[in-house]
Nucleic acid binder design. Sequence first.
DNA 1: CGTTAATATCGTAATATTGCAATATATAAA
DNA 2: TTTATATATTGCAATATTACGATATTAACG
Lengths: 109, 109
Amino acid sequence: MGFTKSDLFTPEQNTVSLIFKALGHPARVAILDYLLKVGECICGDIVNELPLAQPTISRHLKELKNAGLIKGNIEGTAICYCISQEAVATIASYLDSILTQLNNNNNCC
Amino acid sequence: MGFTKSDLFTPEQNTVSLIFKALGHPARVAILDYLLKVGECICGDIVNELPLAQPTISRHLKELKNAGLIKGNIEGTAICYCISQEAVATIASYLDSILTQLNNNNNCC
DNA sequence: CGTTAATATCGTAATATTGCAATATATAAA
DNA sequence: TTTATATATTGCAATATTACGATATTAACG
């Protein structure tokens, strides 16, 4: 096998897990960290910043974009990338809801 | 290839990406959701709740435990699982920090 | 048009993940 | 000790992911 039975779970579970999955690689976290530091940049800047080849960075950017974590604006031959807060807010509120419920109902073993 | 060059990234990037990765599957999100609803439970309860086989649930529980997201207390032949808030708090504060910086410095393209 | 620059896609190889059946382990009860 | 219960591990097959070199695409510039 190796596939995920996503039809067996709720839409929200699938949505948040897809965003979490996109953040489940250090290179993509590093890309977000860099984007946060510089505000916005083009793909080539990230290639210079991280020790990965250009096609690899491009693929990671694609996954971040598919998850809604970044957006890209075409500027001539370059593409200007920046963080999109929506997906971040989605999983942040999911986690905050977990923390709130844990604090209110601390019946942990 | 298929491996991750984790030695190329910062310890924090590796730490948070490992936690995110553990949440990057809908079955593991569903397990957390169920644990949050019932407070604590044993593996068999989750097997009855989710449409996955017992070894598969056991494997997912192992990954959640490795990431620090749950803890398990042995109670006779069963193991009582519950959410551990530390890992949740780690990535929640990481995301909150991103959101704060995005609000303060909105130079997005 | 030809060239350059920036990014994306393709092809391929290696590794990782997912899932289940079968089996192993470990404790409790009879 | 035997049996039942609960969970973990192993072995396997299928799929997914990661990474890079080579190539394609696209737009600006001369």
